[in-house]
């Protein structure tokens, strides 16, 4: 993770909070020349050509993580109705093509934003987070300095995941031999509860991080300044929660699989 020491101050536009993303400036409607709204010309209502925008911008939303699902859904259906290729079948070829492309963009955007986890992952991607790249960079750093690589998940979690996997393996063996171990089964059921609690606790942690993030966006939108360090700190908090979540989710899946079979 390239943590920068520089205390850079984000500019007034909240769009700057997203690395390498700039919001499209208003352009003229291709048909009547008036300034256009996001997808249709405000003057003549014609569909506008698709632009490669991020999903938040597609919906005209700020880069906030708390959003009202009903509102998003309403917006999705409203846009779907207007962008549907059938509606545009009587229009010119290029308008049909645009509505088709925009419909597909709309579906992707909605699918990504409606789910809290994919929404968070998407925002992190916009923020330039690439888990695998980070891991490689940390390995390189460890080689260079001779220091131990900092593991992205806490050691006690790795320990727990490892131990539970050992138990799961034993349980699978026992079952294969036709000698299920009832004590082990009870232990696993207890562990499952523990893992489930830890997993549920992550939702709260994630929401807390969302609130911090949204506060930064709000501050920027109101013309305030946002320190680069603050942005990175909240971003990394979310990365951390999602990393731990990955492990716990896999673990729960594996425990269920063993207990049910």
């Amino acid at each position: 993770m390239a943590l920068t020491d520089q205390k850079k101050t984000a500019q007034l536009d909240s769009g700057i909070l997203v690395v390498n993303q700039s919001r499209p400036t208003k352009v003229n409607c291709w048909s009547c020349g008036a300034m256009r709204a996001a997808h249709f010309c405000q003057e003549c209502g014609k569909v506008q050509p698709p632009t490669p925008v991020d999903y938040f911008t597609f919906f005209g939303l700020p880069f906030r993580l708390n959003l009202e699902p009903e509102k998003l859904e309403g917006e999705f259906y409203a846009l779907s109705r207007h962008l549907h290729p059938d509606i545009n079948a009587i229009n010119s070829d290029r308008e049909q093509q645009w509505s088709l492309e925009k419909s597909s963009q709309l579906n992707d955007a909605y699918r990504t934003l409606k789910d809290p986890i994919t929404r968070t992952e998407y925002l992190l991607r916009l923020q330039g987070v690439q888990l695998e790249e980070q891991s490689k960079a940390a390995t390189e750093e460890a080689r260079r300095t001779g220091k131990l690589k900092k593991q992205v998940v806490p050691p006690d979690l790795l320990e727990q995941v490892f131990e539970l996997n050992m138990q799961l393996e034993e349980m699978r063996m026992n079952k294969k031999m036709g000698e299920p171990d009832r004590t082990l089964e009870r232990e696993l059921q207890d562990s499952k509860k523990h893992v489930q609690d830890r997993y549920n606790g992550l939702v709260e942690e994630l929401h807390a991080a969302w609130n911090e993030w949204d506060a930064l966006i709000d501050r920027a939108e109101q013309g305030g300044s946002v320190l680069e360090d603050d942005r990175i700190a909240v971003r990394d908090k979310m990365v951390d929660v999602l990393n731990r979540r990955n492990y716990l989710r896999n673990l729960l899946r594996d425990i269920d699989e063993v207990l049910e079979n």
Partner: peptide, 30 residues
């Protein structure tokens, strides 16, 4: 003991070192 959060893998690797020679005489993994 290390892990890859991308896929949720965990890997444990152990070495046994001869203190006189610093040679790794045995290694185990899970």
């Amino acid at each position: 003991l290390v892990g890859a959060p991308e896929c949720g893998d965990v890997m444990k690797l152990q070495i046994k070192v001869n203190p006189a020679t610093n040679i790794i005489e045995d290694a185990k993994f899970k």
